[in-house]
Amino acid sequence: MELRTLRYFVAVAERGSVNAAAGVVHVTQPALSRQVRQLEHELGLALFERHGNRLTLTAAGAQFLPVVRDVIRRAEDALSAAEAFAAGRMVKLTIAAPTTTLTDVIAPFLATFGQEDPLPTVVEAAGTSVLNEGADLAIATRPPEASWERLDLAVLPLWAYVPAGHPWSSRASVALEELVGEPLVVLDRPFRPRQILEDALSAAGLGEPECIECSNPQVAQALAAAGRGVAVVSDDARFGLHGLRIEGAQGPLRISLFAAWSSGHHAAPGLAAIAARLREFCAERYGADVAP
Rank of each mutant, 00 (worst) to 15 (best):
A126S: 14
S147D: 11
E178S: 03
E178Y: 06
R189Q: 10
S169D: 13
R171G: 05
T141F: 00
L137Y: 05
P190R: 12
V122F: 05
Y161T: 01
A126K: 10
L176K: 06
A78E: 12
T141Y: 00
L179K: 02
D136I: 06
T112S: 06
E145M: 07
V91H: 01
L184F: 11
P190V: 07
R192A: 12
T101H: 04
A97K: 01
I106A: 05
T94Y: 04
R150W: 02
R192Q: 14
W168C: 02
I106S: 03
A164F: 11
L179I: 04
T121S: 15
L137E: 04
R142L: 08
V186R: 08
E145G: 11
E182F: 06
D117P: 15
L102R: 12
V123W: 07
W159K: 00
S169L: 04
R142E: 13
A87V: 08
G181M: 04
V91R: 05
P144K: 06
V162T: 05
L184P: 00
V162E: 00
E133A: 14
L179Y: 04
Q115Y: 14
P143T: 13
G127V: 09
L158M: 08
E83F: 09
A81T: 10
V123F: 05
T103Q: 10
E178V: 09
L187I: 06
P163A: 13
D136F: 07
A125C: 11
L93F: 15
D136C: 05
P167R: 15
L131N: 03
L131F: 12
A97P: 07
V155T: 15
F109I: 15
V186Y: 02
G114T: 15
T103P: 00
W159S: 02
P183D: 02
A140S: 15
T128H: 09
F109L: 04
E83K: 10
P118R: 03
P193Y: 01
T112L: 13
T128A: 10
E145Y: 05
A135K: 07
I95H: 02
P143Q: 05
W168K: 01
E178D: 14
T128Q: 10
A111V: 05
A154L: 07
P183Y: 05
P183M: 03
R171M: 10
E116T: 10
W148K: 01
D117C: 13
A164W: 11
L179D: 02
Q115P: 08
E149A: 12
L131P: 00
E177P: 02
S170I: 05
A107F: 06
A111H: 12
L93M: 13
V105W: 00
T112K: 07
A125T: 15
V155K: 07
A164D: 08
A138M: 13
E124Y: 07
L110M: 13
D77M: 08
L156C: 05
T100E: 13
L110V: 13
T103S: 08
A160R: 00
T121M: 15
A126N: 08
A82Q: 15
L137F: 10
I106P: 01
V105A: 09
T128G: 06
A140P: 01
T103D: 12
V122Q: 09
R150Q: 14
L131G: 03
E177C: 04
S129D: 14
I95T: 13
P163D: 02
S129V: 15
R171A: 14
A160I: 02
L151P: 00
P157T: 12
V155P: 01
T103L: 08
L137K: 01
A175G: 14
